[in-house]
Design a protein around this nucleic acid. Sequence first.
DNA 1: CTTGCGTTCGGTTTTTGTTCGGTCTAGAAT
DNA 2: ATTCTAGACCGAACAAAAACCGAACGCAAG
Lengths: 212, 212
Amino acid sequence: MGNLTKKQNDVLQFIKDHIRDCGYAPSYREIGEHFKLSSSATVHGHIQSLVDKGVIRIGEEGEARSIELVPQAEPIHRSFRLSADVVNLPMMGLIAAGQPIEAITDNETMAVPASFVLDGANSYVLKIKGQSMIEDGILDGDFVVIERNPSPRNGEVVVALLDNAFATLKRFYREPSRIRLQPANKTMDPIYVQDCIIQGVVRAVIRKFQPV
Amino acid sequence: MGNLTKKQNDVLQFIKDHIRDCGYAPSYREIGEHFKLSSSATVHGHIQSLVDKGVIRIGEEGEARSIELVPQAEPIHRSFRLSADVVNLPMMGLIAAGQPIEAITDNETMAVPASFVLDGANSYVLKIKGQSMIEDGILDGDFVVIERNPSPRNGEVVVALLDNAFATLKRFYREPSRIRLQPANKTMDPIYVQDCIIQGVVRAVIRKFQPV
DNA sequence: CTTGCGTTCGGTTTTTGTTCGGTCTAGAAT
DNA sequence: ATTCTAGACCGAACAAAAACCGAACGCAAG
């Protein structure tokens, strides 16, 4: 993987930002406009270079806005004087009952002792928004460690994706003919579903008090 | 699932927002109005594309406002291990309201990210026993990270040592002529003292769910 | 009957990636 | 000094995909 030129780096950064902000890739002319290039052919050249160097991918010939980022291997480095195993879990976003998970733009991470999770590579952190889980001792602003797990046990707190594509934190109970999702709020009735997507299981709750 | 075009992405986002805000899907002409489209046929085209790409579902032919979101699996993000500052805090014992701290014989420790505590050398961990702190979201079996701190701020949760040498977890409020120790239980009255020994301040609450 | 809604039809306009020549510069090789 | 190469750029043109329009049509509910 040959290193990128300055311009290629700038273009790549712009593409990344655009995808993050808009959810889709920019067009060649939009890229050109940003860099004050009057010809889309110039942009085409840069894109080709980036494809050749393997940092991006584009769809079939002619497909519009089809630039995709190729995941780059992240450097792993260990420390020798590590007193304990710690995993840095990505902070994936905010979760509130009845709302889709809201992504956090900053690429924040949170250090968590490795003993908290069985599979650190399959875990992430969500920040709680709202008071809906208050009866389970999960408060507004708390962090929960989620482990992707296809088979939750009864009584575990899970991140469930309902039909409407909204994510909620609920207690999971598999009953003979259905699945019961029990909210941690007595004023709310349980939700019964035949099937639902379980995004993950809550492995830990962490509350940090601001020392100011 | 082919990627969405720019407009399809925008339309999908609008539908999501509308369902979240109003509880039901928008009509084609409402979508068109928002995007300044004069023909509902245009919207119909976008909706069809979204259905074909499997991100939404619509009811039987002609059913009004029947757009539903199809739950999408989340992309897998990788977490990584790295050398982070971690402190191994000693597990000092069990604490229950109205009881002295009960020492744990095993010389257990708990790994905690250094960001949890200001002064790792002056911190320790207690395990909660009982339901007395339930209204503060601190449940039986939780761990609290305590930092020895002579000057707690108002509203912080502290380990207070009362005259009777029993330790409790209470919220600390310094009032003009006294100190108020507020329990996290509405059935219990606050305790007023002229002075008391503050053993430490709660910096974090950690709840581990047993994966097995 | 009117209103709101999704659907269908044809045709037009805009957007988008791509290609083809050609210019300019800076640095290395001959 | 001359040639060669690579990076960055322009302007024009092209074809396909995407987006759009306006006018109907059918259906259901108030």
